[in-house]
Amino acid sequence: MSDILFRSLLELGDDSLILAQRLCEWCGQAPSVEVDLSLSNLGLDLMGQATLFLGYAGEVEGKGRDADRLAFHRDAEQFRNCLLVEQPNGDFGQTMARQFLFSTYQLALFEGLVGSTDPRIAEIAAKAVKEVRYHADISADWVIRLGDGTEESHQRMVDGFDWFWRFIDDMFAVDANQRALIDQGVLVDRAALRPAFDARVAEVLAEATLPAAQPVWQVGAGREGRHTEHLSHLLGVMQQLPRAHPEAAW
């Protein structure tokens, strides 16, 4: 059972870690100072979550790997994040479409995990849910502002969302082996969160005057370690320093 818990904690930690890395690519390049600060701050919160979940994952695994070891010394196929978070930033519209979809999902997930029967998961979720509520709120604001903005900002939001509809099922995917942990109340059944997610997304898209979610062919399966090519490129940047200089300290 502990290997399933380990894998499940990797899913939680990797989602946050990979999206944090993506968001920090905006640092110094965002459309305004305000946005630059906000994207880096979102990334910082996610990095905090990743540290806690991966730290706990390392303890559960019991092979002496800490959060840094897990972040910097695994290859792409060992990552369990969903495909949505590893997608390139694109323009600001695409980044905000991704953020809104992920934060809306993560908020529902963490609100459930606050009640986990595993006290460590429950306390990390209770800590993080307050931050994620802010993320969901601010990204929804941007979707509405850009969607219901100029002709160009509207079109960019349409294009941004169009890229991401194919990754939604992957984000909610549950492995059959996780069923026992869900039954014990350790994990949340992600599939059960889907109706509320769909309703919230539809609500914000309508307010943003954007077209509803498109039923498109769905890409899998990040949770099983099968990723898009983008993850390897991201890891190449993120892991380069600690791999080239394994003893580096600062």
Partner: peptide, 8 residues
């Protein structure tokens, strides 16, 4: 106790 999870 930390303020924010990622507070540097």
């Amino acid at each position: 106790t930390p303020t924010y999870t990622g507070c540097p």
